[in-house]
Each structure stands twice: as structure tokens, then as C-alpha cells.
């Protein structure tokens, strides 16, 4: 065994534990950003989504490394079974059991996301809620089992990660937007001329004008503030200079509108 002669497997376990926790903190925070519809101006929403997916893959790889080195190492009497079965470890039974719970939940989330094309969307969402429980279990596991997590830098790192995810959870619960929340797409791709809008039929959208600050700046000083709008469902329209024509243009009777009547041949689920 390598572990009998060198302590490096054990060191790798400790190090990858911290790296895994940091990565999952990033993953959870990015997931919250995606769910709360952040992005669309400086960074695209799809970019945050892709980052969420990619970083979660890296995090799962580090989790595998963390688990493999722990089980391979003979320094602590865990075992391969304790990776997925809570309570199977003789070493710090409660802490390792919490880690096993976290791994089980993460595997559920991971597999359901990999099979997203086959899983019903409702089930996928339900399973995805498990990630909060998985993160909480992982955080407690890090404190209860971690060699370096009880004091010093390790404790600070743990606290920082916990506060970050707690803030993300509060934001997710309180600041959750109702369904759709306004226009997006200020990605570089979207700056190209739009093929759907013909010249003269519809002015080019300038989403910068939709920002509240610019609208307030355009308002003359001393004027009464605009009447409060309901932000999630009825975003205020840009100033009239950007949109001279009313929405249903008489010249375009077949202008696309949403929602539309379902077409025959639409894919049914």
C-alpha cells in the first residue's frame, strides 16, 4: 500500500476536501444566479448556466478524488462501503455518515442532470432541490470530520462558504422572480441585426434604455417619479423615442405573438 509508507494520500484527502467544498460553493451560488435570472447585460445568462454545469463537473471530479484517496488510504479505518452508506465507517461515524449522505444526494442530482433529456422536468427540478441538503450535509461533514476545519484558516474558509451559500439560499427564497423577468440578451451575438425585424416595421430594441437608472436620468428634475410598476410581470416600456410604433402593427397582421394557438404536429410530452 502506498499509504503505509507515505502520508500523501491522506494529505490529498484533506486538500481535495477543501477544494471540493469551495467548488460546490461556487456551483450552488452559480445555480442561484441562473435561477434568479441574473445576467443578460454584462454577462450572458447562458454563460452563467454553462459555467454552472461545467464547474459542477469539475466539482464532481474533485469529489471523486477526495473519496478515492480516503478509501484507498489506510490511515483512517473508513472503507469503500462508507462512501455511500451512512454509518458504515468506524472512523468519526457521524461525520463520515454526513459525507455519505451528501454524496448520495449529489449523485442523485448529478445523474438526473446527465439524463435531463429523459427525466421529466418536474422530477428534475424536485431532485435538484436536493442540492441544498447535500451542501448542508457536506458543510457539516467538513466541520465534523475535517482535520483542518476546526481552527485557523480552515475554519474561516468553512465559515465563508457557509455564509455565501446561506446568502444564496436567502436570495433564492426571497428574491425569486415570478416566472419571466424581463428581456435579456445583451450578449455579443444579440447585437447583430435581427433577422425577424424588417426595416421600418419595428425599431431595434435598445435594452440599455430599460434600465431603471437611465429612465430616471431621462426624467427631468423635479418631475414626479413614475408610478410604481410591478417589476416581475409588467416591465415598464422604454421611452417613446425607442418605440414609436404600437406593438400590433397594422402592416404586419401575421406578426408573431406569444402565446400562440398550438399547432398541429407540435410535440406533445
Amino acid at each position: 500500500m502506498i499509504a503505509l509508507t507515505t502520508p500523501y494520500l491522506w494529505y490529498t484527502t484533506r486538500a481535495t476536501g477543501f477544494v471540493t467544498l469551495a467548488l460546490f460553493t461556487v456551483v450552488v451560488t452559480l445555480g442561484t444566479l441562473v435561477a434568479n435570472r441574473v445576467g443578460g447585460t454584462v454577462v450572458g445568462r447562458f454563460e452563467l448556466n454553462e459555467l454552472h454545469r461545467s464547474v459542477s463537473m469539475v466539482a464532481m471530479a474533485f469529489l471523486g478524488l477526495h473519496v478515492a484517496t480516503t478509501a484507498l488510504d489506510s490511515f483512517v479505518p473508513t472503507g469503500w462501503l462508507s462512501v455511500v452508506v451512512p454509518g458504515a465507517s468506524h472512523y468519526r461515524t457521524l461525520g463520515v455518515a454526513l459525507g455519505a449522505v451528501a454524496i448520495d444526494l449529489m449523485i442523485a442530482v448529478w445523474v438526473s442532470s446527465l439524463l435531463k433529456q429523459r427525466v421529466r422536468p418536474g422530477s428534475w427540478r424536485f431532485i435538484h432541490w436536493f442540492s441544498w441538503a447535500a451542501y448542508a450535509a457536506a458543510l457539516v461533514h467538513a466541520y465534523a470530520t475535517g482535520t483542518d476545519a476546526r481552527h485557523g484558516v480552515g475554519l474561516y474558509a468553512l465559515g465563508l462558504a457557509g455564509v455565501a451559500v446561506l446568502a444564496a439560499a436567502a436570495w433564492r427564497a426571497l428574491g425569486r422572480p415570478a416566472r419571466a423577468s424581463g428581456r435579456t440578451a445583451l450578449s455579443p451575438l444579440a447585437r447583430a441585426p435581427r433577422p425577424l425585424a424588417t426595416v421600418g416595421s419595428r425599431p431595434p430594441k435598445d435594452p440599455r434604455a430599460r434600465r431603471l437608472g437611465e429612465r430616471d436620468a431621462a426624467r427631468p428634475a423635479g418631475a414626479r417619479p413614475p408610478e410604481p410598476t410591478h417589476p416581475p410581470t409588467t416591465p415598464s416600456r422604454p421611452p417613446a423615442t425607442h418605440r414609436p410604433a404600437a406593438r400590433p402593427e397594422p402592416g404586419r397582421p401575421d406578426a408573431p405573438s406569444f402565446p400562440r394557438a398550438p399547432r398541429p404536429g407540435r410535440r406533445s410530452r
Binding site: R37, R45, T184, A185, L189, T233, P235, R237, P259
Partner: peptide, 15 residues
Amino acid sequence: HELAPDLVDIDEWGY
């Protein structure tokens, strides 16, 4: 819309 701006336009509410 961000990923396929040529194929998908977007309405006032993001749909």
C-alpha cells in the same frame, strides 16, 4: 435567444 438570436426573438416579458 442569447444562444440562437437568428432563430429566436424575445418578447417584452422574456418569452
